[in-house]
Design a protein around this nucleic acid. Structure first.
Lengths: 233, 233
DNA sequence: AAGTGGTCTAGACCACCTC
DNA sequence: AGGTGGTCTAGACCACTTG
């Protein structure tokens, strides 16, 4: 006996998705109008709409008013990366997290850093180089520049107790974040800190954040040679 | 005179988002029930729901039935990467795209490749090493393994005319894609192909795809040393 | 100008989870 | 067990864009 429950939007999504995988609908093809699909499948138009919007979010389908829905001609592979607090990432892998500060000083911004913020007159920055360890082994080496004009309170925080990474995430929401990912050879000092052979290839993850127009922080995180960044599943 | 149009879900989203940035709502805080917000703002519950779901998708907020909506305690930075056909990526940057095949052969899978597919008995693979150039300069070096049992038609395709990358995207939808990103030193041969100094740090982007349970292809794309991967803005 | 998707509403019921 | 978010519907109107 069939449980003939009402059709949900995920059912509709699977229906279309399957047809795309079947090549029943091929890249560039026009899909039926929402309303026709609704009648055909026996559900409301909003249910079809919900399914279609989801497929559009996944990048599988393109929708245009008056133009209808088409299967994307040149589909992209869309991957989503969640960058968590380093402590949580390390603990999620089952390791014991520790961290310590290698260097900390107040400086005026080097032009290359100012350029990242796309700003002049940043004022003084707090620079911190810190090492994050998993079970005592180097995991991430983090260079961070914090704009003191935007985040003056951080001067009173003991950053050996709570990492700058964690303090900022907890206390300073941002409205914009630029991310860049690239490979970089380890400098001599970095190789020493990470306990690797000289000039290994390391994965670098750069982030720059603002709240409104005000720059908050720029950070460059260098990972162990074996590190692999995996989009969420 | 105020145009007092009806409130849209994006208005509601901005309203909440602003309060989160203001620290009116701080990480861990409970947000009002959808229904209360709807009354307060003078719109329908579904409009609030739409806004909240969007914030949840952005990773800013957590929703639980009966538990209500809370501001995420440990927010993650969520970045979305669109991996397009290499030709389109190069053309989007305003360069002339060319590509050529460096090596092509039919082989049995090396265990490390079989492991990527998490399969045994893959049968024969088509291996292709190809170079993709932007204005004649090396841009990406691609090593690709194609499972011939799943994609036999590719044997009849002239892969100098259309790259395997593009042919597959156009002709073989996938249902699952694993992505891994890491840094790797260039081998001697790779350094030669990419016209860089030996053992540079290169960004590698690996993808493995399946349709249903059937493995399609595994590809390892190595980028020029200067390459920076930027999530969509 | 007309046809498509986008959004909003009010009401109903469901599913899940916490209290 | 009860309250929260999740979903569905039918109908209405809007906004965009293309034929």
């Amino acid at each position: 006996m069939n449980k003939d429950r009402r059709l949900g939007w995920k059912d509709v999504q699977n229906h279309i998705h399957t047809h795309i995988q079947n090549c029943t609908y091929r890249p560039g093809d026009q899909l039926p109008r929402d309303e026709d699909l609704a009648k055909e499948l026996g559900c409301g138009r909003s249910t079809v709409h919900r399914a279609m919007r989801s497929l559009a979010d996944l990048g599988l389908v393109e929708r245009r008013r008056r133009g209808g829905t088409t299967v994307k001609i040149d589909p992209v592979t869309r991957a989503t990366i969640d960058i968590a607090i380093t402590r949580l990432e390390i603990e999620a892998r089952g390791y014991l997290y520790t961290h310590h500060i290698v260097q900390q000083k107040t400086i005026l911004p080097h032009p290359s850093i100012a350029a990242r913020f796309n700003a002049t007159n940043l004022g003084q920055l707090l620079y911190i180089r810190s090492l994050h360890l998993a079970d005592g082994r180097p995991y991430v080496c983090e260079d961070r520049w914090i704009v003191l004009d935007t985040v003056p309170e951080i001067k009173g925080v003991d950053l050996e107790q709570i990492s700058a990474n964690e303090w900022l995430v907890r206390n300073r929401p941002y409205s914009r974040c630029d991310v860049q990912i690239y490979a970089t050879p380890a400098t001599v000092e970095e190789a020493e800190l990470m306990q690797t052979n000289g000039r290994e290839a390391l994965l670098a993850l750069e982030r720059t954040t603002w709240i409104g127009e005000a720059p908050i922080t720029h950070v460059r995180a260098i990972h162990t040679p074996a590190y692999r960044l995996k989009p969420r599943g």
